[in-house]
Design a protein around this nucleic acid. Structure first.
Lengths: 191, 191
DNA sequence: CCGTAAATTTGATGTAGGTCAAATAATCAT
DNA sequence: ATGATTATTTGACCTACATCAAATTTACGG
């Protein structure tokens, strides 16, 4: 498991049961059908979305080109960071790629707990740390790897993505054209 | 001013004077001469480095190629995030590009305060949030802009970088070859 | 099943930006 | 200053990947 995720799990397991119970009150489960948008540009991201079941992605438009920034699976947390932190309208879509079950953690109610219990703020901080390092590593991949290497790295880290998603979305996540991704794939299977 | 920086400044100004005083005790000033390394690969990043005077950068080697990830000026905070958070050896250099004065905020002593005062943890969290969003935006630039656009964007946001630093370093920050950067520049001045 | 639409592959061609090499220009020590 | 060293520019060429277009495969509603 990712060491940052492990760190968060450990910390939440060590939470005093009373706090944990209060925390769970803030959680609201919800289902979305395939293709539904959990967030759209212009909306304020008012919650963390913890994925229980299914796959989702975050993407934005650059002109006519879709850029997929994140793909979420079980236990991942989907959030539009800038919009969430500053509570201002964002510019991304969060989309259900399959039937989806999520736990919604409301911003306002969560923040109250954050101020009531330092442990909860710590947990919140750990999430942000995970995000920051995740982005740093992803940036590094773009700065040091070519398209094939990024594909290989993804294949290794998230084989699920490759198995279940159409090339369009994988290509947009790797920031290459779908034609290029197709060629990378055919070259790899032929070797 | 960057809204995240403003947010941090506002919060630290609202800090109760007693806490502020305790916080200042943790601060230690230090000078470095041009070319000195404040951090090297293999070392654990055990402090935040707040730049008081001068310019610094963070970089790492990818094979023989240097990649500059950040360039720091007055009031910026230099830290190797992954190494700092997990307190494990990192793989980056932090280098003084000029004569440099920094305020060192020691990890251990700062963390004690973080647990003593929720306000301080909040401040710490805000720093991480700033970092996370900074990385997200930088990633976006690589995904949506070509070399000239990245140069223009840097010129606009950080004209100081362009004025005071050699092409080698700017090029490595923009992730282009120095030759390409040189051509971009000559094309721009001729137009 | 079959026809149609969507997804994927394959091919031809263009271009941004890399690499290597040489030419200037700037910096610096004696 | 003057030579030596380092930084920057310029030129020739090459490669990874984009784009456009067509072919093929897959999925899917009737």
């Amino acid at each position: 498991m990712n060491p940052y995720i492990k760190r968060i799990k450990d910390a939440s397991n060590q939470l005093n049961p009373e706090i944990f119970a209060e925390l769970e009150e803030v959680f609201v489960d919800k289902k979305f059908s395939k293709g539904a948008y959990l967030l759209r540009p212009g909306q304020i991201c008012s919650s963390h979305l913890l994925i229980k079941e299914g796959i989702a992605r975050k993407f934005y438009f650059n002109g006519h080109k879709e850029i997929t920034t994140e793909i979420y699976f079980h236990d991942d947390v989907a959030v539009s960071l800038d919009s969430y932190i500053m509570q201002k309208p964002g510019d991304v879509f969060i989309e259900a790629l399959t039937e989806l079950e999520v736990t919604i953690i409301d911003y306002g109610r969560f923040h109250k707990l954050t101020h009531k219990y330092p442990e909860v703020m710590m947990l919140d901080k750990m999430f942000i740390e995970y995000y920051a390092v995740w982005f740093e590593q992803r940036l590094k991949e773009f700065q040091t790897m070519d398209a094939s290497q990024r594909y290989l790295s993804l294949l290794e880290k998230e084989p699920k993505i490759i198995r279940f998603l159409p090339v369009t979305i994988i290509a947009s996540f790797l920031n290459v054209s779908l034609e290029t991704l197709s060629r990378i794939r055919s070259k790899m299977t032929s070797e």
